[in-house]
């Protein structure tokens, strides 16, 4: 008797991802599709994709999605969630989107305790526009606008938005994970599932930051990219639960 152990999630449209080989977005899209299916919330979920590589998320995820201007996802999601409080609303944002141009919207949504979930994909660069320096780019890291590496005196230090958000009263669950290995992918899935459950229980703002490889702009191969996350990025952005005031209320 054959047993099917792996298949395309029902909520992943039959389209070929446009993402580069080794990109973390494809993995994350798949995880989101699986989670929504497992939680059985496809009929009441609304996603807000960003400007950036993942703007085309609605080409892959078979759920309601409303596109936001660059950085404004948290404000758009606020408008959706306040109008439809019983729906599950999530944003999906890159590091440039959330930690540079959208910092204000994000911090204030968290501070209001907007009952939404944010998936923050941190790849340390502006991927879609050609790998420019992002607020999260590491010191010394090359990018198309930091030839010779990010220089603290000139460019400032990498920002830790998740830690900043943890300071707000309205945020209840913030965890940093990565998708550089099967084990970490499973951890990421658990974190996003927990974030959705927290929202469904009406407990407040939840965010999962996912360190994600961008081999094309990092100018590395896939394996090296995953290794670089493990060995270098996590030094600046350690994998951990940054804040969890929910505790055992959500399993």
């Amino acid at each position: 008797m054959e047993k099917k152990v792996f298949e395309r999630p029902k909520l992943l449209k039959k389209a070929v991802f446009h993402y580069c080989p080794g990109c973390g977005h494809s993995i994350l899209h798949r995880l989101i599709a699986e989670i929504i299916e497992e939680l059985d919330i496809a009929h009441k979920v609304v996603g807000v994709p960003p400007a950036g590589c993942a703007v085309l998320a609605y080409d892959y995820l078979d759920i309601d999605m409303g596109e936001s201007p660059h950085g404004r996802c948290a404000a758009v999601a606020t408008g959706i969630k306040r109008s439809l409080p019983d729906r599950v609303v999530f944003t999906y944002q890159g590091d440039g989107d959330i930690a540079a141009i959208g910092t204000a919207e994000t911090i204030h949504a968290a501070n209001r305790g907007e009952n939404i979930t944010t998936i923050f994909v941190n790849n340390g660069c502006y991927g879609m526009t050609g790998g420019q320096m992002a607020p999260t780019t590491l010191i010394g890291q090359n990018s198309s606008t930091t030839p010779g590496g990010r220089d603290y005196a000139r460019d400032g230090a990498p920002i830790d938005l998740s830690e900043m958000l943890a300071l707000t009263k309205g945020s209840v669950y913030i965890e940093r994970t990565t998708v550089n290995s099967p084990a970490n992918i499973r951890k990421t899935k658990r974190a996003i599932t927990r974030a959705f459950k927290i929202q469904m229980a009406g407990l407040g703002f939840s965010l999962v930051e996912v360190l994600s490889p961008c081999p094309t702009n990092w100018k590395m191969n896939t394996v090296d990219s995953c290794k670089w996350i493990e060995e270098t990025i996590t030094k600046t952005y350690p994998l951990k639960v940054i804040k969890d005031t929910v505790g055992d209320k959500i399993q």
Binding site: V46, V48, G66, S68, P69, R72, A75, V76, A77, T78, G79, I80, K81, R82, S83, L84, A104, E105, I107, H108, R112
Partner: peptide, 26 residues
């Protein structure tokens, strides 16, 4: 009804954008 004092004019109009997506008169 929802009233929000937004953190910025930009946030306010984008909240309206989100509310309009749900069909609310915003």
């Amino acid at each position: 009804a929802t009233f929000i004092q937004a953190e910025s004019e930009i946030a306010a109009i984008n909240m309206v954008l989100g509310a309009a997506m749900t069909g609310a008169r915003a």
